[in-house]
Simulated assay, not measured.
Amino acid sequence: MIQTQVIEKPVAVPCLVDSPPECKSAYAVDRVSVKDDPLTINRALRTEIEERSACEVKLLAALRGCKKGMRSM
């Protein structure tokens, strides 16, 4: 006699997420020259902090989305 048995086993599936547009290879400080005045450099540094923060938020959201999808298996 043949019996059918269901065995549930989680299988890892890669989560493909594109890099958010906020995460770029060149940030504000990359456009500053050593010859620029300190105020311009300071503004660029503050802008870069905001840019990187926005990138981090998007990356964390993508990571949580991938992890959430894995838990539902």
Rank of each mutant, 00 (worst) to 15 (best):
G65S: 11
E50C: 03
V11A: 06
S72K: 03
C15G: 15
E8H: 13
P38V: 07
E8I: 15
E22F: 05
C66H: 00
I49R: 03
R52C: 10
A61T: 11
D30R: 01
A26W: 11
T40D: 05
G65A: 12
A26T: 10
M1W: 12
K68S: 12
S33R: 14
M70W: 09
D37T: 09
R52N: 11
E56D: 15
D18E: 13
C23K: 03
K9V: 15
A26Q: 13
I49E: 10
A12F: 13
A44R: 01
R64S: 10
D36C: 00
L16T: 07
V6M: 06
L60T: 08
R43C: 09
S72I: 04
K68Y: 04
A62G: 06
S19L: 15
E50W: 04
C55R: 02
P10I: 10
T47G: 11
K67S: 07
M73S: 14
E51L: 00
P10W: 11
A12K: 02
T47A: 15
T40G: 04
N42R: 08
Q3C: 06
M73E: 13
D36S: 00
S19D: 12
T47N: 15
I7F: 01
S25L: 03
P21L: 00
M1T: 13
R52Q: 12
T4Y: 10
M73P: 09
A12Y: 10
E22M: 05
C23S: 05
A54G: 07
E56I: 13
L45K: 12
R43A: 13
Y27N: 07
A62N: 08
M1D: 14
P21C: 00
A62W: 01
K24E: 08
P10D: 05
M1H: 12
Q3W: 09
A12N: 05
T4P: 00
V29S: 00
C15S: 14
D37L: 10
V34T: 14
R64V: 10
M73V: 14
E50T: 14
R31A: 14
I2Y: 09
V29P: 00
P14Q: 03
D37E: 13
R43D: 15
P38H: 03
S72F: 01
P14W: 02
A62S: 08
Q3R: 06
A54Q: 03
S25D: 02
D36A: 02
I2S: 07
S33E: 11
S19I: 15
N42T: 10
R43Q: 13
E56H: 14
D37C: 14
E48D: 07
V34N: 11
A44K: 01
I7E: 06
D18F: 02
A44Q: 01
V6L: 09
C66M: 01
C66V: 03
S53W: 06
V29G: 01
K67L: 04
G69W: 02
P38N: 07
E48H: 07
I49W: 02
E22H: 03
R31N: 14
G69F: 06
S53Y: 08
G65M: 04
Y27C: 01
P21F: 00
V17T: 05
G69H: 07
C55P: 02
V13K: 06
